[in-house]
Design a protein around this nucleic acid. Sequence first.
DNA 1: CTCCGAATTTCGGTATACCGTCCGGGGCAC
DNA 2: GTGCCCCGGACGGTATACCGAAATTCGGAG
Lengths: 222, 222
Amino acid sequence: MTAEPTTSTHVDRAEASIRAGIHSGSYPQGSRLRERELSETLGVSRIPVREALVRLAAEGLVVTEPRRGATVRQLTLRDVDELFDLRLSLEVFAARRATERCAQGHRPPELQQIMDRAEEATRRGDAAGIAAANTAFHAEIITMTGNRLLQASLQPSLGLMHWLFRLTSTEAGPHLHCEEHREICRVIYSGRPQLAEALAYAHIDIRREPVLQALSEVLPPA
Amino acid sequence: MTAEPTTSTHVDRAEASIRAGIHSGSYPQGSRLRERELSETLGVSRIPVREALVRLAAEGLVVTEPRRGATVRQLTLRDVDELFDLRLSLEVFAARRATERCAQGHRPPELQQIMDRAEEATRRGDAAGIAAANTAFHAEIITMTGNRLLQASLQPSLGLMHWLFRLTSTEAGPHLHCEEHREICRVIYSGRPQLAEALAYAHIDIRREPVLQALSEVLPPA
DNA sequence: CTCCGAATTTCGGTATACCGTCCGGGGCAC
DNA sequence: GTGCCCCGGACGGTATACCGAAATTCGGAG
């Protein structure tokens, strides 16, 4: 096959394609991802598709059974609950570390910019933009810790959260959400780790029950 | 090829083989993992080897560069430092959750059994047994939370820690280590989350500097 | 002796082909 | 009418083959 741009491989494109299809809902939860079907759709052979599926399986977006191949992961309420616990453990810690680094003079402007984008999107009523900015906000706090391992550990889960934002379409209060982000940002920049920790904890945990409630009619319990 | 036992696939065996080779030092850090070489060594074709390498790359044990293939990950001091932060964020949280579940009556005996094994190994001077039991101890606390996502997130890092135990061969104080585990176990069973949190934090963070010091002559800084 | 460039070799990326297993449907026996 | 068995298609698991890019090596010029 003719693949001129050496910078991007068929596997990468297949992975991106499948991931987009899952996020957009083209491949619903629990639906099978047949290798031949995908390879024909994407115009490549099965081998790159296989590799892409293995990567997505490692990330948790798809599950592969021994002789049945890959299916889009069927999220359960338990999964979402576990997701909140993982976010608590990682993001609360990250908020503290980020604050400590800010106190040492490391104060990048990205967080402010992201929040400006979020408020801009809120004004325009751009739901997708809001979700993207919110996800970026949480990702940026992790980035501010300078810890790539933390970042890599949380990234798949942030992707899932981003996905869930769509399922719980009518986000209860984007304004309140933004307000909390603004507050967290202030505290991080102000260099008070314990306060940042507490705010991050509350910001995440307060949404556990509402989200679970909203999803209780869409997702299987376990 | 004749592969009668359907329960195990060539990919699984290749993955296990390569992982073992890395842990044992047969494939040193930074050494290249050539697909043809591996496929010939393992007696399979390149395809299963590729998949195994992709899995190990997702786990972080090997790194793959666009046109150079896979190499055993070269750990740096920065990586190890980041590892300690990840463990702090996950294990401290897990200690709290595990304690809370214990307080609700969920009190499995596995933790005690693992510690008995650790002390038994300590008496025999069985270094490998000690390392295995210690790793199992930390893994069990995660398991006690009942959160499979936390478990999946920490597992690769515990594997790396287990690997590091070998590099820092002469573990300073296995007795002290065991004593701390015993103490943590007591507190978890006693149902005091805050105390468990504090003990877990200290137990991990107190070893950061010594380990970094011990590795400073073996690993590159960054 | 050194340096540079071209040929060769190496190696990952991909395609195609084959095999064994699993699943579904239809027919035959009871 | 029902249940069992056999057969065919579907699909994942694996092997082999080819291609292009990159690294290495070797030979010739300075």
